[in-house]
Design a protein around this nucleic acid. Structure first.
Lengths: 94, 94
DNA sequence: ACAAATGTTATCATATACGATAATATTTGT
DNA sequence: ACAAATATTATCGTATATGATAACATTTGT
């Protein structure tokens, strides 16, 4: 192994991490893409998390948590949020 | 009030029920429509709930419960189900 | 640079989604 | 009509989504 060089094992590990990351991201894609759309819409409308929270009937901290994508949200919750932005949610398969 | 007739109050009550029902259905539309698509896809593929359960990694009873629309399902769970049917889920707003 | 507005993070309590199993009901094919 | 396959329902345990509050961080406008 070269003295100052990069070790194969390291590259392998790095690539592995990439694969893991990609796989994880792929799994969570629907969640992230939905959230991205919602944040976009909220910004377009110039609505604060606080205002959205008010409309949804929750707290701004919960909206922040939701937008962070930190957990596996429910259909009802996203539906309430989307509608509180004056939009409708459409779900299709394939 | 006519002897054998329908009382206004009854009609009112009935209509009320209809309105309630419609409102409730409207609220749950995304859930029901998604489930309908999933059941459809499963039938098209001639896959039993048991087989789907196997692919998803759960029990057939849980698939049945899911397809009944009895509860507020999560994004991850529907995503797993859809993908186990060899499809992808697409969610858009407006 | 400051104050006000907006967003984030941590934490606790409660409700409920989902896993699992078993018993029952319904549908299907012969 | 029957047996086998498929679907449904009830129930319990566990994990976690969501509500709520409060303290902290970041961004924005002046």
């Amino acid at each position: 192994m070269s003295k100052a060089g990069v070790k194969f094992k390291d590259i392998e590990t790095r690539l592995m991490k990439d694969e893991e990351f990609k796989a994880e991201f792929e799994k969570l894609k629907p969640r992230y893409e939905l959230i991205a759309q919602i944040i976009d819409a909220r910004n377009q409308l110039n609505i604060t998390q606080e205002e959205l929270a008010l409309r949804v009937g929750t707290q701004k901290s919960n909206i922040s948590r939701f937008e962070s994508g930190a957990y596996n949200t429910s259909l009802d919750f996203v539906t309430k949020i989307v509608r509180s932005l004056g939009k409708e949610i459409h779900i299709t398969i394939n």
